[in-house]
């Protein structure tokens, strides 16, 4: 299969300490597929998104390779080849109308029309474009965030924790939106703490623990008792899901 984004031996560390926040990260994202990176909070997930885009905070350094189609990612890839889906409405400029913010990412002859088409495609009224971020409801905001991924010409989409503290309904709505992004032919790097979201969207799952990737595996390997999983922690993660405990309980009785 055709890889579009490759991360190899990527480490992130403090500028003046030998303390690694991410160590020897490696995975390949295939064109049009979803790779879920699952880890508990504090495992260094958000740093990964920033280091792929070369946007780490000033006091952090990185080494290793981040390759887009076999060449190092640089700042010109941002927004053109790799796009970040904002985590929440906080990632929109509070003083700029939503339509204008989406338009700024669209590279087409008539960005305004493309923006209106995208809003319509996601079932939003055209008047959303003239609103400010604080005037959006939760559902509208999630759709607007998805239009940013859809409107951008980028083929790689990084979704950093797209379902932060959402209730079940909102979560499934966001999952559906991300599926729509994938159907538009884009590869998604899904960074999440929610194993459930990962299983519903991903083709591959990478498990991150204390700054290291302990296992990258096909999503179909999460089945049964998890006998196809290699690392004990991955198995434990799989078995800890409520529905699996329930199956086990049902089998025993």
């Amino acid at each position: 299969m055709d890889t579009i984004l490759t991360v190899n031996q990527l480490s992130v560390f403090h500028q003046n300490a030998e303390h690694y926040l991410l160590e020897d990260i490696h995975f390949s994202l295939y064109r049009g597929q979803v790779l879920a990176l699952v880890g508990a909070s504090g495992s260094g997930k958000s740093l990964l998104a920033q280091s792929i885009l070369q946007l780490l905070p000033d006091n952090l350094r990185q080494n290793g390779d981040v390759l887009y189609s076999d060449r190092q990612v640089n700042e010109h890839d941002r927004g053109r080849n790799i796009v970040l889906i904002p985590q929440s409405v906080e990632a929109l400029d509070p003083l700029m109308k939503v339509g204008k913010q989406i338009e700024g990412l669209i590279q087409a002859e008539n960005p305004h029309q493309v923006m209106l088409d995208l809003l319509a495609q996601l079932g939003l009224n055209a008047d959303i474009a003239t609103r400010y971020p604080f005037q959006l409801s939760g559902g509208q905001a999630r759709r607007v965030l998805a239009t940013i991924a859809l409107g951008s010409p980028a083929n790689v989409v990084i979704a950093d924790e797209p379902t932060p503290g959402l209730d079940e309904e909102a979560k499934y709505e966001m999952i559906a939106l991300l599926k729509e992004v994938q159907q538009a032919g884009k590869a998604i790097l899904l960074i999440t703490h929610d194993f459930d979201v990962a299983l519903q969207l991903a083709d591959q799952v990478a498990v991150l623990d204390q700054g290291e990737i302990i296992e990258v595996t096909d999503v179909h390997h999460f089945s049964g008792d998890g006998e196809k999983l290699v690392h004990p922690l991955t198995k434990a993660l799989w078995q800890s899901l409520p529905q699996n405990l329930f199956i086990k309980y049902a089998e025993k009785t």
Binding site: G79, E90, A91, L92, D93
Partner: peptide
Amino acid sequence: TPYILQARANGYAGIRLFMRHGLRNMLL
């Protein structure tokens, strides 16, 4: 702020970033 990180991730930098998202938010 998150929206500046977002704008950077979307390719805005330097004077374009400043004019688009920096100026108004700082001016207030």
